[in-house]
C-alpha cells in the first residue's frame, strides 16, 4: 500500500471522485425514487443506463455522422451536438424506464403482494435487454467520438480541472436542483411524496397511482439517461455489460445514503465516488469495488437504515 499517492494527488482524486459520484447520484435516482414509491428494487435500471449510453453514442455517430476519428467540435456546433446527445440519451432511457414499468411491474402489482416476483420479472427484463444488445453489438465494446476536446481549464492544488469533468459536475448539480424543486414544489411531486409515504391512503385520497408511478419511472429514467451521457463524455466507451458494473455501484450508493431518500442518494453517490477513487489509488484499481462493499457493510452495521435513513413511517413498512 502506498499512501503517498493519496497525499500527492489528493486534489485531483477528489475532483475525479466527485465527478464519478455525480454520475452515481443520477443513476441512483432510478433506484431510490422507484423504491420510495413501490418498495421494490428496480433491478432493470442498470439496463436503462446501458441503453442510454448506447443512445448517446448512436446519436453522435448515426445522426450527426461523426466517426471515432472525428475532430473535436467547437462553438455553437459543439453545444448543439452535445445537447442532442444528452436529450437523445434522456429520451431513450426515460421511455425505456416507463416501458419496463408497464411490462415488468404493472401487471404484477395488481396481482400479487410478493415483491420477489417483481424482482424476478425485473431480472428477466434486464437479461433480455443486456442479451439483445450483446447480440446486436456482437459483444464488442463501442467507442465514442471525442467531440468535446478535453482541455484543462485550470490547475487547482495540482489537480487538473478538465472541461468534461467540470461539465458533469455543473450539469448534474443543475439537474438535481430541478429535480428537488419538482419533487418538493410541483403537484406531481407532491403526489410522488404522498404515494411514498402511504400507498393505500394516497389511493383513497384519489391519487391516480399509475400516473404517479409512471412519472416516477420516467424521472428515474431521465436521471439515468443523463448519467449515461455524462459517463460517455468522460469515459468514452460502453459495452453491453456496462449496466451491471455501474448499476451495482449506483445501487450501493443509494443504499449507502438510505434507499428511498433522494438527498440520501446524493450523499451516498458522492461518498461512493470519492471512496472508490481514493481506494483505487491506494490499493490498486482491482480492489475498487470491494472497498465500496466493505464500507457499505460497515455503514449498515452501525446505521442500519443508511447514512440518512428513511423517514420513520417508511422504515417500518
Amino acid at each position: 500500500m502506498d499512501f503517498s499517492v493519496l497525499t500527492d494527488q489528493f486534489a485531483s482524486l477528489t475532483f475525479d471522485g466527485i465527478a464519478l459520484g455525480f454520475i452515481y447520484v443520477l443513476i441512483a435516482l432510478g433506484y431510490t425514487m422507484v423504491y420510495g414509491v413501490l418498495r421494490l428494487i428496480n433491478f432493470a435500471n442498470s439496463e436503462v443506463f446501458m441503453l442510454g449510453s448506447f443512445a448517446t453514442i448512436l446519436v453522435a455517430t448515426k445522426l450527426f455522422n461523426h466517426t471515432i476519428e472525428s475532430d473535436p467540435l467547437t462553438g455553437f456546433k459543439l453545444v448543439y451536438t452535445m445537447t442532442a446527445m444528452l436529450v437523445g440519451a434522456m429520451i431513450v432511457s426515460g421511455v425505456a424506464s416507463v416501458i419496463i414499468e408497464i411490462v415488468a411491474y404493472r401487471r404484477l402489482r395488481s396481482r400479487t403482494s410478493n415483491r420477489l416476483t417483481s424482482l424476478i420479472s425485473a431480472i428477466g427484463v434486464s437479461i433480455v435487454l443486456a442479451e439483445a444488445v450483446r447480440m446486436a453489438t456482437s459483444s464488442a465494446p463501442m467507442g465514442s467520438p471525442r467531440l468535446l476536446d478535453k482541455t484543462i481549464l485550470a490547475t487547482v492544488w495540482g489537480a487538473d480541472i478538465r472541461v468534461d469533468t467540470l461539465l458533469v459536475i455543473v450539469f448534474a448539480i443543475i439537474l438535481l436542483i430541478v429535480l428537488d424543486l419538482f419533487v418538493n414544489k410541483s403537484r406531481l411531486g407532491m403526489g410522488i411524496r404522498a404515494v411514498s409515504m402511504d400507498y393505500d391512503t394516497s389511493r383513497l385520497m384519489g391519487i391516480n397511482l399509475n400516473k404517479i408511478i409512471s412519472t416516477t419511472f420516467l424521472i428515474g429514467g431521465l436521471g439515468t439517461g443523463a448519467a449515461s451521457f455524462f459517463y460517455i463524455t468522460v469515459y468514452e466507451m460502453t459495452r453491453f455489460s456496462i449496466g451491471f458494473e455501474l448499476g451495482l455501484a449506483a445501487f450501493t450508493a443509494a443504499v449507502l445514503g438510505g434507499i428511498g431518500n433522494i438527498r440520501g442518494a446524493f450523499a451516498g453517490g458522492i461518498a461512493l465516488g470519492l471512496i472508490e477513487m481514493y481506494a483505487s489509488a491506494v490499493l490498486g484499481t482491482q480492489w475498487r469495488s470491494i472497498t465500496a462493499f466493505v464500507i457499505l457493510i460497515l455503514v449498515l452495521l452501525f446505521k442500519p437504515n443508511g447514512i440518512f435513513g428513511e423517514s420513520l413511517q417508511q422504515a417500518r413498512v
Partner: peptide
C-alpha cells in the same frame, strides 16, 4: 435472451 423472456412471461 429466451431465458429472460421465459422469466418475464412466467412471472
Amino acid at each position: 435472451l429466451i431465458f429472460g423472456l421465459v422469466l418475464i412471461i412466467m412471472m
